[in-house]
């Protein structure tokens, strides 16, 4: 009776937000696609002309593109590995009854709340600085040559900083998962006489499979977009990833058309990754 009216009313009520969200998404995407088809250089404004797919050809054949893809993948995989292995171990430790457990947990979570820019500056100037950094001081105090992180191992340095930020996230998710392990199952394992390693391998790890896939999904999405750490530490040259390359094209080479093409390529790649991840996780979450 009133259902049809209610339904219409509901649609009308939802419409504004849906329309705003749609425009919010489609206008930048459409403009980026449009720009990617133009010769559009900020050094030569007002002379835009349609060039078809030339920007894509240029971007995809640029050797820097493959380097950037490589760096993106290395960064994602390395940080995922560190945060999941480290996160699992930390979560196991934090699950133990220790004095001041709540404070320790809070301290472990803290890095996640720090802005990437700030953390990058702190790492760059206070830890990894070849002259005044803590690592340099440690090396010198045992008589070794200090490492100039950003000159010698820029990607490793970026991985360390980003992993430091994302380790707490993985720890937090995995800790809650460990704590949700059924108490009677733990006791059954105890009565069965399960030694610690077997207990971890047969009871804890299978229980963590699902949260681990969630961590992989969420971290991958964010790690593909890492930019601040690379920009702030000036490691863009040797360790630049895809977002950095887009920035480089647009704001350092003033090539808006090329940067837009790069942006679209990044969107397509991210969607391919997301497609496989969602499939993988969907399978894992069903069970």
């Amino acid at each position: 009776m009133a259902t049809q009216q209610t339904r219409l009313l509901g649609k009308l009520a939802v419409a504004p937000s849906v329309i705003v969200l749609f425009l919010w998404m489609i206008v930048p995407l459409a403009l980026t696609i449009y720009f990617s088809l133009l010769r559009y250089n900020l050094l030569d404004p007002g002379n835009e002309s349609f060039v078809g797919f030339f920007n894509y050809e240029y971007f995809l054949s640029d050797p820097a593109f493959f380097a950037a893809i490589g760096n993106s993948l290395k960064l994602v995989f390395a940080v995922l590995a560190i945060s999941i292995v480290g996160g699992t171990l930390l979560a196991l430790l934090l699950d133990q009854a220790i004095v001041g457990r709540n404070i320790v947990r809070l301290m472990v979570i803290a890095p996640f709340f720090i802005m990437p820019t700030v953390s990058a500056l702190v790492w760059k100037n206070m830890f990894m600085h070849p002259v005044s950094g803590l690592f340099a001081w440690l090396m010198k105090s045992v008589g070794l040559e200090p490492i100039d992180w950003f000159a010698q191992y820029p990607l490793t340095a970026v991985i360390i900083m980003v992993a430091w930020q994302w380790l707490p996230f993985a720890t937090l998710i995995l800790l809650t998962a460990i704590q949700s392990l059924d108490e009677e199952q733990k006791e059954a394992a105890e009565m069965d006489g399960t030694p610690p390693i077997s207990y971890f391998y047969y009871i804890v790890l299978p229980h963590l499979a699902r949260p681990i896939t969630v961590v992989i999904l969420i971290e991958t999405i964010f790690l593909l977009n890492v930019f601040a750490e690379i920009y702030v530490t000036g490691s863009g040259g040797p360790a630049g990833n895809l977002p950095y390359l887009v920035y480089f094209q647009g704001l350092l080479n003033f090539d808006v058309g090329g940067a837009s093409a790069g942006g679209i390529v990044a969107v397509v790649l991210a969607n391919i990754v997301a497609f496989f991840l969602i499939r993988m996780i969907g399978r894992n979450l069903e069970g």
Binding site: Q185, A188, M191, G193
Partner: peptide, 26 residues
């Protein structure tokens, strides 16, 4: 001794055969 729990406490990712044999295998 062996105990049967209220919630059964079966290991969820092991099939029945492995659940039953787990303690012996250990």
């Amino acid at each position: 001794i062996a105990m049967v729990f209220q919630s059964y406490a079966l290991y969820p990712h092991m099939d029945v055969r492995r659940n039953m044999g787990f303690s012996l295998n250990l």
